[in-house]
Amino acid sequence: MSIQHFRVALIPFFAAFCLPVFAHPETLVKVKDAEDQLGARVGYIELDLNSGKILESFRPEERFPMMSTFKVLLCGAVLSRVDAGQEQLGRRIHYSQNDLVEYSPVTEKHLTDGMTVRELCSAAITMSDNTAANLLLTTIGGPKELTAFLHNMGDHVTRLDRWEPELNEAIPNDERDTTMPAAMATTLRKLLTGELLTLASRQQLIDWMEADKVAGPLLRSALPAGWFIADKSGAGERGSRGIIAALGPDGKPSRIVVIYTTGSQATMDERNRQIAEIGASLIKHW
Rank of each mutant, 00 (worst) to 15 (best):
H24E: 07
H24T: 05
E26Q: 15
V29H: 13
K30I: 10
V31G: 05
V31M: 05
K32I: 14
K32T: 15
D33R: 02
D33P: 01
A34S: 11
A40V: 11
R41V: 10
V42E: 01
V42R: 00
V42Y: 05
Y44K: 00
L47T: 09
D48Q: 02
N50C: 07
N50D: 11
S51L: 09
I54Q: 06
I54K: 11
I54N: 06
E56G: 04
S57Y: 07
F58R: 12
F58H: 02
E61W: 03
E62G: 02
F64T: 02
F64R: 01
P65S: 08
M66K: 00
M67N: 13
S68G: 00
F70P: 00
K71N: 00
L74N: 02
L74Q: 03
L74V: 14
A77I: 14
A77V: 10
D83C: 02
D83V: 03
D83A: 05
A84N: 10
A84Y: 08
Q88F: 13
L89Q: 10
G90D: 07
G90T: 10
I93C: 15
Y95T: 13
S96P: 11
S96I: 14
Q97M: 05
Q97R: 10
N98G: 06
N98K: 09
N98F: 10
D99H: 07
D99C: 04
D99V: 03
D99A: 04
V101S: 04
E102D: 02
S104P: 11
P105D: 11
P105F: 05
V106A: 15
T107Q: 01
T107P: 01
T107N: 11
H110F: 15
L111K: 02
T112E: 15
D113A: 04
D113G: 02
G114P: 08
G114L: 03
M115L: 03
T116Q: 11
V117W: 07
R118I: 13
A123C: 05
A123Y: 02
A124R: 00
I125K: 00
I125G: 01
T126Y: 09
M127S: 13
N130C: 15
T131E: 05
T131S: 05
A132V: 01
A133R: 00
A133V: 05
N134I: 09
N134M: 03
L135Q: 13
L135T: 08
L136I: 13
L137C: 10
L137H: 05
T139I: 13
T139L: 08
T139M: 09
I140V: 10
G142P: 05
P143H: 06
K144H: 12
E145T: 12
T147D: 06
F149E: 05
H151W: 10
H151Q: 12
G154Q: 10
G154K: 09
G154D: 12
H156V: 07
T158Y: 01
L160D: 02
L160R: 01
D161L: 06
W163R: 08
W163I: 07
E164D: 01
P165Q: 04
N168K: 07
I171M: 15
P172N: 11
P172F: 07
N173V: 08
D177N: 04
T186C: 11
T186S: 09
T187W: 15
T187A: 14
L192I: 10
L192F: 12
T193L: 05
G194K: 15
G194S: 12
L197D: 15
T198N: 12
T198D: 03
A200S: 04
Q204R: 04
L205D: 01
D207A: 06
D207R: 08
M209G: 11
E210F: 14
E210C: 09
A211R: 14
D212R: 11
P217L: 12
L223A: 10
P224Q: 08
A225N: 03
G226W: 13
W227G: 07
F228T: 05
A230P: 00
D231S: 13
S233N: 03
E237T: 13
G239E: 09
G239C: 07
S240H: 04
I244S: 08
A246F: 07
A246C: 13
A246I: 06
P249R: 12
K252H: 09
K252D: 15
V258N: 03
I259G: 01
I259F: 04
T261Y: 14
G263Q: 10
G263K: 13
G263T: 12
S264P: 04
Q265W: 09
A266Y: 10
T267W: 05
T267A: 04
M268G: 13
D269T: 06
D269M: 03
E270M: 01
Q274R: 08
Q274D: 09
I275K: 00
G279D: 01
A280I: 14
A280L: 13
S281P: 07
L282F: 10
K284M: 03
K284Y: 08
W286M: 10
W286P: 04
